[in-house]
Design a protein around this nucleic acid. Structure first.
Lengths: 372, 372
DNA sequence: CTGTTAGCGCGTTCAG
DNA sequence: CTGAACGCGCTAACAG
């Protein structure tokens, strides 16, 4: 199924014909075996494992406990799940994203949050199963096959998110998702940002610097979910400054694929971008990517053009000039998401959580004042 | 257990007292139910699921198949695992790394490869369980609890890797790991780079530009595993050019924590770095990080100092000047790793795989010639 | 070709 | 306080 051609330098790579090994030994330490060893019943062992001291004599408790440690007992999850217990798995689903047409892998935001999610999930005594791509149904199948206790869905588009809500039978926490009001009922969890306000602020800052001709750049040609909110924030700021926005002209939908995007940007630099003194980007990644193309085409940032990003991740710090951007706290996002998901797992349908974390304008070097 | 203080702006967050819901319904579609519906035995259904056409009449086959689709049957993994079948899980273990003291989250290399690994694992019909941190034993416990079929271990230090080999009862594929020769026996899989050669090449390139005073910078004070090999490559290139290396003076071990590292670098800029015309870094990440500190301290790169990275990831492209670096193909690494792990799963102990992928010198703008 | 049965490991009754 | 018995969903071995 994997179509790779391993024609790289291989140092040693011996091969033996069909060395079929019987692996029937099963080194698994089971409750039963522990019970045999100590000379008690499996139930007693189970009780010890679950710390039910009032059900086991102190003497036995000690002996069993010791045997468990000795043998490094690890409960078999399959057995556990089967006997109506939680699987202790949280599924994390990617790729219902604004950047869905390209491998999510390259998106620094997703990379970062996945790391933090894993950390939080592990700290709660759960395991994380990571799943990318596929349809909503596919994801839900995965979830039910493993009796997954909860799902984290990243950056789903409204339609997908709504399908998740309708079809799923388990707690779901969304991150950065906008759905129709009617879906926001008991059991709904979403952790997002004040996208509108964040983009309003940064646009407004540009306006305060004297900019009037400000464009808006996003991934893809559709403005939906997060990007839509950010666009609206930008639009509102412009409107409040007495500048109407023409979606046709002032919005630039950039291709997802790197090469195409660069080609398109190179073209824009020579044409439509000339009409602007500032550009608002929906992510640091995109802004930095454009920054390089602009610089390579002898645009000076910020002298010739001011640009702003969104995220305040490592990219905006490592670029030169450093990027003026909107900060979001990814770690907080992950923590809150898992916190509320755990609440929901332990106490279903108890709450509605729709968090919009504050953002913060980070003024750096990629923007300049038009006044003097 | 999670110690977070959700004192952020929360829009709506209602709460209800203990709305304890009975969720005993179990919407799970089981083989048994399908069997009842169609009016055949569970075995027949199982046979259809596994495509054993020769064991089921064509008529029944059709009827069952239809019912399965109709009901959107998904096999319960726990049952499957329990009855001696593979779990279809590949565990991916992080954090036995050269950068282990800090959250792996921030390391772009790990982020990237995790994404590609997930892709490959999924394409092989497996699931990925991601696990960070913890001891070798802990990781192996996880693996046995879930009857994990194979493990991918990223960036393990030699000692940990050797423990994995000794204790584990399942196929393991290492990435970027160096172990003692004696551990390289049937069943061993490692996919790494020509670290020595890569660093030799880049150092040699600097030498060819006329540099003689070249320093070496890595994470942490210990040179082990990958970093050790790279250091050796650097050392050898210097030796071949008639320059002996003093590990005390010419090696710079940088702190893992960002703040401390920046402080240390700021200090070095004013002192020891002055004695060098070029610096070799073990990663793009580190090189770019230092580049910024250097630039912020009015060092001009490459006029005052040439620097090189390792990885050729997005960082080396987005920096200004672009980084001269050593390219590795992360996608290839992931593909080969999973390819060979799958081989090993299906045909245990059949091979020894110790791949060292070629690297490629990428000459960009962060290095300059001392000749004229 | 089809159905019955046993057992995987665990947790939870329910009798002792 | 302890142990025997059952069932979760699935598969494989075995009868019919």
């Amino acid at each position: 199924m994997v179509a790779i051609a391993p024609n790289k330098l291989i140092l040693h790579c011996e091969r033996q014909p069909q060395n079929h090994v019987d692996k029937k030994e099963s080194l698994m330490v089971t409750i039963k075996k522990i019970a045999e060893m100590v000379g008690v019943s499996p139930t007693t062992v189970s009780n010890v494992i679950h710390g039910r001291k009032n059900k086991v004599s102190e003497e036995n408790y000690k002996k069993v406990k010791e045997a468990l440690n000795q043998a490094n007992y690890v409960s078999n999850m399959s057995g556990r799940i089967l006997s109506q217990n939680g699987s202790k798995i949280i599924g994390v689903i990617l790729n219902y994203s604004r950047r869905s047409e390209v491998n999510v892998v390259s998106d620094p935001f997703y990379n970062q949050i996945v790391g933090y999610l894993e950390e939080q999930i592990r700290m709660n005594g759960y395991y994380m199963m990571l799943y990318t791509s596929g349809s909503v149904q596919e994801s839900l199948n995965l979830a039910s096959a493993w009796k997954i206790e909860g799902l984290v869905v990243l950056g789903a588009l409204p339609a997908d998110a709504e399908k998740f809500i309708q079809v799923a039978h388990m707690p779901i926490a969304f991150i950065d998702t906008y759905v129709n009001e009617s879906f926001i009922k008991k059991g709904f969890i979403n952790v997002g940002l004040q996208d509108f306000e964040g983009c309003y602020d940064v646009t407004n800052y540009l306006i305060s610097l004297g900019h009037r001709k400000i464009g808006f750049c996003a991934d893809g040609n559709q403005l939906v979910g997060v990007d839509e909110q950010r666009f609206n924030g930008y639009k509102q700021a412009m409107a409040d400054a007495g500048r109407g926005i023409n979606r046709q002209h002032d919005f630039f939908g950039l291709p997802y694929q790197v090469k195409e995007r660069h080609d398109y940007l190179t073209q824009l630099v020579k044409t439509r971008f000339k009409a602007y003194t500032a550009l608002v980007f929906t992510s640091d990644y995109l802004a930095i990517d454009a920054l390089n193309v602009l610089q390579d085409n002898h645009f000076r940032i910020p002298q010739d053009l001011s640009i702003t990003g969104f995220d305040h991740n490592i990219f905006s710090e490592q670029s030169r000039p450093k990027l003026t951007t909107v900060e979001q706290n990814v770690k907080d996002k992950a923590e809150l998401t898992i916190y509320h998901l755990m609440q929901e797992i332990h106490q279903p349908k108890a709450q509605i959580v729709n968090i919009k974390l504050k953002t913060k304008l980070i003024i750096q070097e990629s923007t300049r004042s038009l006044r003097r």
